[in-house]
């Protein structure tokens, strides 16, 4: 049973600056945070992991790498980073991200269950869950408080309603959106310090063409990306890291 959990990196609203003079919201120094609903989704996914599910973390957005590392420290088995270069911020438009996810599933194999936060931030419901279900042609359960799988290929979720919660069932594969809730899970610190998540698959923007070249594997233990960066690793990893950067800068096909 493969369960994918969506981990969206959004801007911490308290770190956004409004430039009145230029009439823009400055995102340059914005801190990435994990969408609160997705953290709850991750907690639910880990409960399923405890009963044997194989977990795939799908990090969306350029700031998601840190959250994938955290997901690895929490026990997520497989990590995929959807960088989506040139795509809009998730807060502005999730459509291209939904497309990237759906295409990724088509190319790389779909999970049995996708968990995603019901809300992106604490203001509005996110379209990602419903629209991904629609795009994939899968059933959808929304605002789940708790998710369980049964042996007969069904997913069962207690979902929040207007006045009370109700138990819903759907066949797999299925998309479930997870209701917000208080945070109860932190990555154990010894695990955060253990070696990085290792292999991280990266999905770029399929729409930009060159689909064959958009899946690559990078070593997340490589040096962080900074200007004037010094790469130090054993030769094979060093070559991979260098090639990856050259590709990103458009210097290598």
């Amino acid at each position: 049973m493969r369960v994918a959990v969506v981990l969206r990196s959004i801007c911490d609203p308290s770190s956004l600056r409004v430039s009145r003079g230029r009439g823009v919201i400055e995102t340059g120094r914005a801190r990435p945070i994990l969408a609160a609903g997705d953290r709850r989704a991750l907690e639910e996914a880990l409960r399923l992991h405890n009963v044997g599910a194989h977990l795939v973390g799908l990090g969306l957005g350029s700031g998601a790498e840190g959250f994938l590392r955290e997901a690895a420290a929490l026990g997520v088995d497989e990590l995929i980073h959807l960088r989506g270069e040139g795509m809009p911020h998730l807060e502005l438009d999730e459509s291209p991200w939904i497309e990237l996810l759906a295409e990724g599933f088509e190319r790389r194999g779909a999970p049995d269950l996708v968990l995603v936060g019901h809300r992106l931030n604490n203001r509005r419901a996110s379209p990602l869950g419903p629209r991904l279900a629609e795009r994939l042609g899968w059933p959808l359960l929304t605002r789940a408080l708790q998710v369980e799988m049964d042996s007969g290929g069904q997913v069962r979720a207690r979902c929040a309603g207007e006045k009370a919660s109700a138990l819903w069932e759907a066949p797999l594969p299925c998309v479930v959106t997870i209701e917000d809730g208080p945070r109860s899970l932190y990555a154990p610190l010894p695990a955060t310090m253990a070696a990085g998540p290792g292999e991280l698959e990266v999905w770029m923007n399929w729409a930009s063409g060159n689909a064959e070249k958009t899946v690559e594997t990078v070593d997340t233990n490589a040096a962080p990306e900074v200007r004037g960066e010094k790469l130090a690793a054993e030769p094979r990893r060093l070559a991979q890291a260098l090639a990856q950067r050259l590709r990103r800068w458009g210097l290598l096909d």
Binding site: Y186, T192, M193, P224, V226
Partner: peptide, 18 residues
């Protein structure tokens, strides 16, 4: 090099959240 390792960055993030 004044940067923290990715592990220390994550440690900070988890401790800060906590």
């Amino acid at each position: 090099d004044f940067s923290f390792s990715p592990s220390h960055e994550l440690l900070r993030q988890v401790v800060r959240d906590f």
